[in-house]
Amino acid sequence: MSPQLIANIVVLAAIYALVSAGYVLVYRVSHVLNLAHGELMMIGAYILVATAGLFSGNPILALLLAAVSGLVMGLVVYAVLMRWLTGEAVLAAVLVTIALGILLRGLSILIWTTQQFYPAAIFGWRNPPVHILPGVQISVASLAIVALTIIVYAALFLFLQFTAWGVRMRAAGQNPLLAEQRGIRLHAVYALAWGLSTFTASLAGMLLSLDSGVESTMATIGLKAFPAALVGGLDSLFGALVGALIVAAAEIAAIQFVNPLLSDVVPFLVLLLVLAVRPWGLFGSREQLDRV
């Protein structure tokens, strides 16, 4: 395998990892699989288009505003939709996220049409390829995605491990009844999980749009990142990281050596393989399977 191929794998893995972190956060805390995640990521990218249009002279402000909107988006989704489904069958909640995905897809086309937007161009940024090693080049935005993925994962790890709210999120995921009896407000914890989930998804969407623009098909990336989360184990952040690497490597190898058309199906082939052999994922806990 050439060094360039490895670099491509790392970049794709970083994208999948950044997107799948949101799947894991929501699943781990509330056991809901959010199938609107890709669409929420896409909305995050479109919001950057909007803020970039408003503050084209001040990219930092535009980026910051879009990032904060990404956080608020999840809080709103929880408050308006998902909170009414707490305690209901998990599948009803999953179906609601499917419906939400379709709603967002329609809305985004109504607002932004099917045209492609380049927020980087609005800022007047170019996205030149960088030689990181002799003969190995990736775009600046891709480099930023890899760096951001590392930062986000480190931050999430520290947050979950060492802050009061992080521990509460873990506790609520394990035993919501006991958590409630220990005075933890489940709605607050769930809302926070949704907020962080759409926040990280928005970051991914924003950087992807800076790299190659945003159009109405971006949501597909969200769906392709889902196998990464499942391969690692839906309740394990570390698993998502490893799962992203596996799925990205398989996908790029298939494109390179077998057939470019395989790109969309390889993540799901990996997923089927894992479901057949070890359905709770490489690092997930086995009892997850009986929960749903």
Binding site: V167, R170, A171, Q174, N175, L178, Q181, R182, G183
Partner: peptide, 26 residues
Amino acid sequence: IVLVPERDKVFPNLTVAENLTVAATR
């Protein structure tokens, strides 16, 4: 009013110290 439940009385994947800090003390 605080309960010590019969089953599932602690958070198994949290440490002893975390089990204490997780409670939202009034």
